[in-house]
Design a protein around this nucleic acid. Structure first.
Lengths: 232, 232
DNA sequence: CGTTTGCTTGATACGTATCAAAGTTGGTGG
DNA sequence: CCACCAACTTTGATACGTATCAAGCAAACG
């Protein structure tokens, strides 16, 4: 089990370019952990202890407000990194990481990681690429929040989630987003309220764009959603 | 002049940890350029040619929409990098870079930069730190756009700009934001319209929070702006 | 000067938040 | 297996913030 987990992590972008010898060196620093659904990997403001690499499951990153309203900045899945930001600059985690379902992760302690990226420049470069990817996504999210209306933002969010956790619908047609998300999560991903998120999703359903199936959302008309996402 | 420019770049975060010998190697790849106000360093969608390091002046990064409305994702000043994202992953620039005033930059061609970061791991690490910083700012911007009202977003923007281009007011009291920004720019930084931005700024002025001076904004009551920024 | 560019104000319409209440679902224990 | 509870979803009525449209004004500029 643990061996299998490590093997999967070895093919992760972060480590894929290491030689077998280097990998044997690196693997000593890795630790496996498993969390049930709705548990916290760390909280916004905690000191940076470790980098997390998701092996299985999904994790949302939530940015809290002084007041009650939270924002789900992103949802991450297998192979992706959590906590890199804090780990590299040593400042507290800027978001809270919450599991959406049972999740297994591999961690590397901050100090060990710092050693590794000095020893293996290729790992460094993969980190740069990953930060890059995040920054591009984040920039696009900023644009969307700044100029799109709720309907467009939700359409975009659904399409993004499809890319992250899409699977053919277990019954009939469509692409299922196989991630446990509440309407509240959708609302927090799109900077709106539960009620509005529900209203929009209902309308999408009535228009045949999406469909519900055991608490999951199935996308029926991706072209249609893309049209809405781009603002008609 | 050019020598002076290079000397300044040497103290930039990206290169500060290089030895004198390494620096002599690096400096061969650097090129100086100067742009008047309102000129374009590159456009969103252009292939990534080079990394830019600002020596003097200010540059805004604008993300365009399919429709007309643009978003100013950030404003950058001396010592900061432009175009890193595209340069590292090789994909087109995700934003357009426009000078807000006369601006001098140092550039490194994409290929040369790739060579450098392989040769000098310390540079790699500085890149990671810079991407980190950007990502933190971008995340906070997302949060602000998602949950804050316009008034709060503008207060936040003013405080950020103060950190970037703040200087003691040339007359009387207050801290001047020494950057040429139109109300349109403010609106595009905060995801609102010119008219709304103007209304909010006018109210701030009437309440004694800010003041105008030769086309610049002077912050008179930073505590007050911080109170508004945090939502009453 | 006239023309452009940016600033300002007002009237109105629309999108979305807010508050309230009821319906639905899944899980738990009797 | 059913009853119950808590969490989540749904719908409606209303209020509020902000966009939009329109028009006038000031300053910069060739």
């Amino acid at each position: 089990m643990k061996r299998e987990m490590m093997k999967a992590v070895r093919t992760t972008p972060l480590f894929r370019s290491l030689s077998d010898g280097d990998w044997r060196d690196v693997v000593r620093f890795l630790h496996g952990h498993c969390y049930p659904a709705d548990s916290y990997l760390f909280f916004q403001g905690d000191p940076p202890e470790a980098l997390y690499i998701i092996w299985s499951g999904r994790v949302k990153l939530v940015r809290h407000t002084d007041q009650g309203r939270d924002v789900v900045v992103t949802v991450l899945g297998p192979g992706q990194l959590i906590g890199e930001m804090a780990v590299f600059d040593g400042r507290p985690y800027s978001m809270t990481a919450v599991t959406l379902e049972e999740t297994a992760v591999v961690t590397i302690a901050r100090n060990d990681l710092m050693t590794l990226i000095q020893r293996y420049p290729a790992v460094s470069f993969e980190v740069i690429l990953e930060l890059n990817r995040r920054l591009r996504l984040c920039t696009e999210l900023v644009r969307s929040l700044a100029v799109d209306r709720v309907e467009q933002r939700i359409a975009r969010a659904l399409l993004r989630l499809k890319d992250l956790g899409g699977a053919p619908a277990p019954d009939g047609e469509g692409v299922m987003i196989d991630i446990h998300l509440t309407r509240q999560d959708i609302a927090e991903m799109t900077g709106t309220t539960v009620e509005t998120a529900i209203r929009v999703m209902s309308r999408f359903r009535k228009e045949g764009l999406i469909r519900n199936y055991k608490g999951r959302t199935i996308l029926l008309d991706i072209k249609g959603l893309e049209t809405i996402a781009r603002g008609k």
